[in-house]
Write a protein that binds this DNA or RNA. Structure first.
Lengths: 347, 347
DNA sequence: TTGCAAATCTATAACGTTATAGGTGATCCT
DNA sequence: AGGATCACCTATAACGTTATAGATTTGCAA
């Protein structure tokens, strides 16, 4: 049965090494090689050492399709991104930090953007039903999020960028937008601002609610007026924001403060305010947030908290890996706090 | 041989449908089902219709591991990104446009950032040797790029964001940085600028050379002085750029123009110039490029060409798919031209 | 000496897919 | 009638991996 040649020959030219190759070289059965490489308990130390040395020397790498077919494990994490958000480096930082956190793991990151015109459930269903990933990361959560409900029901591991109202706790990493709102209104009040216009995130999204709630509560507590821009949100197209802001500033000249929920929209708002004769830091203060120290270069007088997107991304990766590997442990939930050094307060 | 139950039963509870399921339902052999779904020529129209209807109704999706194991096709495109570049939306737009272009294809996009501290060859070798993708997209090319040489030698499909000096033509999509340099110097000359400071991309990268060459040629032709910042490049840390620019502006007060190769560095440069008493558009003109209309909000007077990164990303995806599917066709090479409407010229 | 357990290895089958060679009728030509 | 051709379908094997059950050897107690 044994060929006269195979035993002598090691790695054949141009052949991608597999377990079979190692089996041929060492003379062990394929199953033994597999078990040795996986540190099974019923393989001798000696054999393990020999097999691993051989694997190293011929540059063996497990065929991921083989593993996947046999075990069902894909070693893939899927990041499903809604694209047209605050692209001001938010997206790039998120991707790069998630991928960075996976670097030391066997997991690969696949990125699937989805577009405003399509059903948010489509990519999710595809991944889950086709089992083309071990876990999912999704962003832009809504309070009652259909994707989250679906994933929980299917028992599919995931983590979310943003919280939800789901009665069942799930892994997430989020920015504390409530605190963001509070800090912002306080900073504006500290500068004597009496009437603040808020450009919130979309109200149907969870962090939109948070910003609305916290700025409202803070305004009442601090005794300042608070107007909320209607029909546009911080992720609306620049032109829409421009028109809306111009309108409100005209009808409400008493506005002396701005609370903007995104970096991009802040640029637009400042632009409009300036063309209407305002001077930031003088006749008007603007509060926002940023992932990289950028607004302070845009206009030195803008007030902004730092949002550590890289940390959020790292947490999302950790949360999702925990969800895969210890599904019964309590879900990892990370809430990142805005950092803001207000020069008026000293540090 | 046939079980008494299988034939009657369609989709069994909780079972992920496979070819075998369809085979059981239709009574056809698994091989026939496979061939029918793949439109093989030796299957009748009638059977094809019946099989496809069945597949649709039970929500059959091919198991990618099975296909991959059998055919060697991964249906994955790998985008290996160097991260710490001009992150000003460049990265996010690139990823989202490549993924967008793949949306209508069977390909998925995996993203592997690599970090300045690690060997650029490592992720490449991993993908190729493990065949964990059908093709690669890489960015930040160098004139003599080791990754490109390796991929050509291995016959592995790829496309590059940026050109190289490789003697063998390969697929690429690139921004015409030569023209970018020419247009910039001309725009500055048109404004009567006599001494222009250039902040180029790193000279070891291909597009760095292009910018250096084109600005040099244009300066000579237009009869203006041209200084090049030393020891820093457009992707250097903000602080380094700041120090370098401040130094040169002090020793060379005659500088009245700036040519900046990246959006991020432009902000820094403008910042420094202003703190030294300059006024953009008045005592100094600044020329740069941007992926989104952003610099015009930063300072209305900045001159900038538009770089259509989304188009480049789409081209990269097309190029790489062509490289996979028709490897012998001439490589797809796309050169995107900067667009610049100079108000001084009329349009 | 027999029996039994522990240690170590192997044979087999299966995951889902598709390429290949082969089979079965039917139709057509001579 | 015999053979060739065509249209359509099926059986088999293989891709690389690992879980399972079984085989072999060794050591040791009864």
């Amino acid at each position: 049965m044994t060929s006269s040649e195979d035993d002598k020959i090691g790695l054949r030219a141009g052949e991608r090494p597999t377990l079979k190759t190692i089996s041929r070289i060492t003379g062990l059965a394929v199953a033994t090689v597999s078990r040795a490489l996986n540190d099974a308990h019923d393989i001798s130390q000696d054999t393990k050492k020999r097999v691993k040395a051989c694997a190293d020397s011929i540059g063996y790498l497990p065929n991921r399709a083989g593993v996947r077919l046999r075990t069902g494990k894909t070693n893939v994490i899927s990041l499903v991104l809604s694209t047209e958000h605050d692209m001001m480096n938010h997206t790039a930082q998120l991707i790069s930090s998630v991928a960075g956190a996976l670097r030391t793991t066997p997991y690969h990151l696949i990125v699937t953007p989805f577009y405003p015109d399509e059903d948010p459930m489509r990519p999710i269903r595809y991944i889950v039903e086709n089992r083309s990933a071990d876990a999912l990361i999704i962003n832009q959560t809504e309070p009652k999020d259909a994707r989250v409900e679906y994933l929980i029901k299917r028992g599919f591991p995931f983590s979310t960028h943003g919280r939800t109202n789901s009665p069942i706790a799930h892994p997430y990493a989020d920015f504390n937008n409530f605190k963001f709102g509070t800090i912002g209104m306080e900073a504006l009040a500290r500068r004597g601002r009496k009437c603040v216009l808020v450009l919130p995130p979309p109200a149907y999204q969870n962090y939109g609610r948070e910003v609305l709630d916290s700025t409202k509560q803070a305004a009442e507590r601090l005794g300042i007026r608070r107007l909320v821009l209607q029909d546009v949100a911080s992720d609306s197209p620049a032109q829409d924001i421009e028109i809306a802001v111009r309108g409100v500033l005209t009808t409400h000249p008493e506005i002396d403060g701005f609370f903007c929920a995104s970096t991009t929209s802040t640029m637009v708002v400042v632009d409009v305010a300036e063309t209407m004769g305002h001077k930031i830091g003088d006749t008007m203060d603007v509060f926002s947030k940023e992932a990289i120290p950028f607004l302070r270069r845009f206009r030195r007088e803008i007030l902004a908290v730092h949002e550590d997107v890289r940390h959020t991304g790292t947490s999302l990766a950790q949360a999702v890996i925990q969800a895969i590997e210890t599904p019964n442990a309590p879900p990892l939930q990370v809430l990142d706090t805005p950092t803001f050094d207000d020069p008026l307060q000293g540090s």
